[in-house]
Computed example of a mutant assay.
Amino acid sequence: MILGLQFGRHCNTHCLITAILVTVVGVVNGSTQISVDEDLQNLLGRCHNQSGDDYNNCMKQTFNDLRAFFTTGVPTYNIKPFDPHHCGFVELRRGDIHGPGNFKLILRNISEYGWSRSEVTKVHTDTEDQRIVYAQYFPEKSLEGQYEFKAHMLGAELRRRGHWNMTLYDYSQTTSVQRVGAPGSLLKVHVEVDRIGGMELHIENLLGQPLNQLADGVINSMWQLGLPFVRPMINELVSSAFTDIFNESFRYFPLEKFLS
């Protein structure tokens, strides 16, 4: 949900937050280069001359006015849709895989749905650090993909793989986006889970048949107890995935072309 733009000498944090809009909205309601450029010109110039709280509030309102366009992306500028959005690979490791209690988790071919119904509730800019922080609420978000898990536990190696899917209800997150280095350098994205009101999770082959249904039941009835322990890992996985997604689609978007 952030656009990786090339900052000019005079392009400050307001340029960066303006760029979020292209990512969040994914505007394509015309079939020609001219219509796309006109749409982006009107869109990106909406809040450009404002500052401070007025700018933040204008951007928040603009995001939410254009939620319907999450599904389209901007193919002309290689901006991919965000509902659903896809991530091919994300990995989480803890310690030496051959050590006791350590593990490696790989998620592949991840699809995530629910962005069109989300709402940006707060936007904050940090000019000095070139950082944007925004809060987002999802009444429902769902994810699915393939997983591979490897660990050493109690002297034995554990390997599992299969399909997984998860639905989150009454969910909110805060995303921080910062450019590190000179114009054209990579964006750094960090996502924090703020609230999960409800969750349904299915992990294929976690315990093997016929115990897998039992495992689902235990996870879905007791996930709140384990959330404080797994929240940091969720934040790390999501942050890693979105850093890759944002840089792939938005690193070289020609933002200054559309600023009034």
Rank of each mutant, 00 (worst) to 15 (best):
Q173G: 01
G8T: 08
L255G: 05
L259N: 02
S172F: 06
T18K: 04
E157S: 09
F258Y: 15
Q33A: 10
L187Y: 14
V28E: 12
L5D: 00
S249M: 14
H86F: 15
L143A: 13
N235E: 10
L206G: 03
Q136R: 12
D54T: 11
F258M: 08
L21T: 14
G30E: 05
H124N: 14
C87H: 13
M166Y: 03
M166T: 12
R117F: 04
I106P: 01
P228W: 07
L237S: 07
D126Q: 13
S35W: 00
I203C: 02
N102P: 03
Q209R: 13
G226R: 05
N42E: 12
L227S: 06
N205H: 13
L107F: 13
M59V: 15
S142A: 11
L3K: 11
G181Y: 02
S51Y: 09
G181S: 04
V189D: 02
G217R: 12
S35P: 00
N102T: 07
C47P: 03
L259V: 09
Q61K: 13
M1G: 11
I196R: 03
I79T: 02
I219Q: 03
V177K: 02
L40E: 03
R131S: 14
I2R: 08
A215K: 06
L40N: 03
Q224F: 07
R160F: 01
P210R: 05
G162I: 04
G52R: 05
G155V: 01
Q209P: 09
Y169L: 13
E112M: 15
G226T: 13
V90T: 13
H163N: 12
N42V: 07
S249E: 15
L225C: 08
C58Y: 07
N49I: 00
H85R: 11
K122T: 08
L214Y: 09
E91R: 15
V90L: 06
G145Y: 09
G155Q: 05
Q33I: 06
V123I: 14
L255F: 10
R161E: 13
I132E: 10
G181I: 06
H98Q: 11
W223E: 06
T32Y: 03
D216F: 15
K60F: 00
L237C: 01
T175E: 11
I79K: 06
G101Q: 03
F250V: 06
D126P: 07
Y113E: 07
L5Q: 07
Q41L: 10
T76W: 07
S260R: 15
F246D: 15
E148I: 04
K141W: 01
N102V: 01
C15D: 08
R195L: 04
M233G: 00
N102K: 08
M233C: 01
S118R: 05
G155M: 02
D216C: 06
K122I: 00
S260I: 10
I110V: 15
F82M: 12
P210S: 04
I79D: 00
N64V: 00
L143P: 00
N109A: 10
S31L: 10
N64F: 02
S185W: 03
T127Q: 12
H14S: 11
G8V: 00
G4I: 11
L105S: 04
G197D: 05
N220S: 11
L201N: 02
P139I: 08
A68R: 15
G184Q: 10
V238Y: 01
E140I: 08
T127P: 01
A182V: 12
R159H: 07
F7N: 10
G99P: 01
I20L: 12
L107K: 09
I245T: 08
L158T: 09
